[in-house]
Amino acid sequence: MKNLIIYFLLCFSCSLVSQNKYITKTGNINFEASVPAFEEVKAEHKIVTAILNSDNGEFAALALVKGFRFKNALMEEHFNENYAESDTYPKATFKGKIIDFDLSNLNLQASSFVIKGELTFHGKTIQFDNLDILISKNKDIISISGSFKTKAADFDIKIPKIVRSKIAKNIEVTFNYLLKRKLKFN
């Protein structure tokens, strides 16, 4: 019995020192590869999971590739089947760290931070060393947003000649997360 009590005390003390985490399951990622005068090529993902450790600025995000929604179903099918190969590579992930993150300095006004980390998609990982992001905080919600440009070739995705002129070389990716304080024992 005494042991049990000790265990529970240990357990509680653990949670007391455990990190502060902010999480969302409804983060947004958009990408656009449209070429003027051709059919719009863009997609939106509204159910990205992301997590932030507010003690050290570590950040991670995960999107199921099949969750990207396009203008029409055919484009979505081709994206999954021919380009992203989402049956083979179902997840896109990011893992990184916000430099000099300090929770106490955040306020309603968005401030600039730099994040570094690695993005994995289609089985390929690319490194970000200084990606600019904006962070603001409203009560228990931290907002993180930003954008970057990338190329399909960076992820080993081949675009066939016949559609090459209709898909932009530089793909603009934007992201936006509203992270809520994660409750303990949750």
Binding site: C11, C14, K21, L52, E58, T93
Partner: peptide, 22 residues
């Protein structure tokens, strides 16, 4: 007791943020 002692190890193993959401 053994089970209880093993359980916290699992709790600590959640250190990697990505694993936590994956």
């Amino acid at each position: 007791l053994a089970i209880l002692l093993l359980t916290p190890v699992f709790t600590f193993s959640q250190d990697d943020l990505l694993d936590e959401i994956d």
